[in-house]
Design a protein around this nucleic acid. Structure first.
Lengths: 116, 116
DNA sequence: GGCACCTGCTACAAGATCTTTGCAGGTAGC
DNA sequence: GCTACCTGCAAAGATCTTGTAGCAGGTGCC
């Protein structure tokens, strides 16, 4: 998935997701291989609740993927893996993304309402 | 400037700067050429005060550049231009950036204090 | 029953970000 | 003097994000 396949809104979502030290470290950790939530929390030395929040954001942005599995002893384990991505950030790519920002529609809509 | 020349902290700063619709639109607008603040504000249909805030952030992140000039009729004009950049966002690049996050040092330092 | 591990959720406080409003300064021209 | 344009800053409030605490469920084992 390249940046040109994303809408401006999706790019904003991905960038705001990746603009957090915790989430960068999570991506880095998952690069070593799949991991389940509790273990990853111990490895990164953050609380499970906090990790879950960040993982949910990463998943919402399409950057990681979750699979629920049963371990051999019957425990429900949620494994996260990275979804490979490559986004090129240049002024030109941003200009292309800007054209598909619904943000602009919202502003113009509000404008029209304000004047009507 | 490529992403590999940035520290993790700088990358976080750049990403959080670019994760905003206004700022993406500003970069896109400046791609057409240099522009001074008031005119750019009219073009983007946002208040000058708001634009200034966003421009300051873009400048702090090293994405745009400002030059103060005197117009022929003696008015002080602040022109902004884009500083070309190319950042490749991949899990691998993020892993490299994660290694240079001072965030981690801070956490380990706090840990040591908490235990000592 | 106890314990240790796995998952999920929500509510709340604290902090960061965004946006507006209102003030200050300047030049040029009528 | 006034108006129209240029710049700058900061306080205040609304809104989003972050992190913690506490609750719920489940399994397996002693």
């Amino acid at each position: 998935m390249t940046s040109s396949e994303r809408t401006g809104d999706e790019l904003v979502q991905v960038l705001s997701t990746l603009s957090n030290p915790h989430r960068i470290r999570i991506v880095a950790a998952l690069l070593d291989g799949r991991e389940y939530v509790s273990r990853l929390a111990r490895r990164l030395q953050i609380s499970r609740a906090l990790l879950q929040v960040h993982l949910r954001k990463l998943e919402a942005a399409g950057l990681v993927e979750a699979t629920l599995e049963l371990s051999p002893d019957g425990k429900a384990m949620k494994y996260y893996t990275i979804r490979q991505f490559a986004i090129e950030l240049t002024p030109q790519a941003l200009a292309a993304a800007a054209a598909t920002l619904t943000y602009e529609e919202a502003r113009l809509r509000d404008d029209a309402q304000g004047q009507g």
